[in-house]
């Protein structure tokens, strides 16, 4: 018989790999708890946009969420860590390593304290953020210069656009298809899956440039007050279920991006890949700006010294 109700809110649609991961997690938690935890999933922003969901968690209006780290920077600036130049153009494994290691822990600690949540475990990657264009193909970083490139608002993205001589443009996601088809901007930074879900080729996207600017992560969390009222065995189920499945979920997220990539290609989007070497060169050029970027992003001193301590491994 149900003793606890676990409602989860995500703002991606039912078919999105994150929604699917959370749905699978909820199903398993309910099963393993023998129905003592009754779970319910609200997707597509029915209850909350991710931007707003952490406050609802704090206030006890909902029990679980997995917001992207990019919407958490207003409360925990260190959530923006992957905007640092050192992560530009890196392989996913590098970002995963940082997220799963001490850097991720430093950020998690702040999430737990400030948002009054329990972080379930390792984060769920959304995938590479790339650049896409409508009018002219981007084949190298020089092509960025002078283009109007839309981003979703964080300071890191706008600094990066400026670094390449592009003109950063901030447009809310709901306005993107219309703005694209009207030529309000020449390109945008996003992921394959986001583009495919909005079918943005119909809004004029023709080219993709796989510059792997950073990797966004969804942070799985449940509200502290919910977690604390659970008996120890259920607490263990809630945490273990995530830990045991996160590898599968990560794979699923990657597969979804690959599928989206193929969908985009099938619909005529042409991709260019600068290659690891070129990315690494660009990263070296960006590195001198790292401290300024950190300052702009309000990253904390402990986080930055951790980054410096690991920089040997990261910049391999």
């Amino acid at each position: 018989e149900a003793q606890f109700k676990l409602r989860a809110s995500v703002d991606t649609s039912l078919s999105h790999a994150r929604t699917q991961s959370v749905a699978d997690y909820l199903k398993k938690v309910q099963e393993r708890s023998g129905g003592r935890i009754e779970t319910e999933l609200f997707h597509s922003g029915q209850l909350y946009r991710d931007r707003d969901v952490v406050k609802a968690l704090r206030q006890g209006s909902v029990e679980m969420a997995a917001p992207g780290n990019w919407v958490l920077t207003g409360l925990v600036p260190d959530a923006d860590v992957f905007q640092l130049p050192i992560f530009f153009g890196q392989l996913a494994s590098v970002a995963y390593g940082a997220a799963d290691g001490k850097i991720g822990q430093l950020v998690d600690t702040q999430f737990q304290q400030k948002l009054q949540v329990k972080i379930l475990g390792r984060w769920l990657p959304l995938g590479y953020q790339n650049c896409y264009a409508t009018s002219k193909p981007i084949k190298s970083f020089d092509d960025w210069a002078g283009m109007k490139i839309r981003n979703s608002g964080g300071a890191g993205q706008s600094l990066r656009a400026k670094f390449f001589g592009a003109i950063p443009n901030l447009t809310a996601w709901p306005d993107v298809p219309l703005a694209l088809s009207q030529g309000t901007f020449d390109g945008l930074c996003s992921t394959d899956e986001s583009l495919a879900s909005a079918k943005l080729w119909e809004a004029g996207v023709k080219y993709g440039f796989e510059d792997h600017e950073f990797i966004g992560f969804y942070v799985p969390m449940i509200s502290d007050r919910f977690y604390r009222q659970l008996p120890a065995d259920l607490q263990k189920i809630v945490v273990d279920t995530w830990q045991e499945n996160i590898e599968t979920y990560r794979k699923n997220m990657e597969t979804a991006q690959e599928e989206a990539h193929r969908t985009l290609e099938k619909n005529g989007v042409q991709f260019f890949s600068p290659g690891l070497e070129a990315l690494s060169k660009i990263r070296q050029k960006m590195m001198p700006t790292q401290d300024d970027v950190a300052k702009e992003l309000r990253l904390s001193a402990p986080l930055m010294s951790q980054i410096k301590a690991e920089s040997g491994n990261l910049s391999q």
Binding site: S13, S15, S44, G45, W173, P174, D175, P177, L178, S181, S197, A198, K199, L200, E202, A203
Partner: peptide, 21 residues
């Protein structure tokens, strides 16, 4: 078009907004 409700519909139902318009 333009239509705020069609934009919202497109987001939720994953449909192309220009097509809806």
């Amino acid at each position: 078009p333009p239509s705020l409700s069609l934009i919202l519909y497109g987001l939720i139902a994953e449909q192309s907004v220009p097509r809806l318009f």
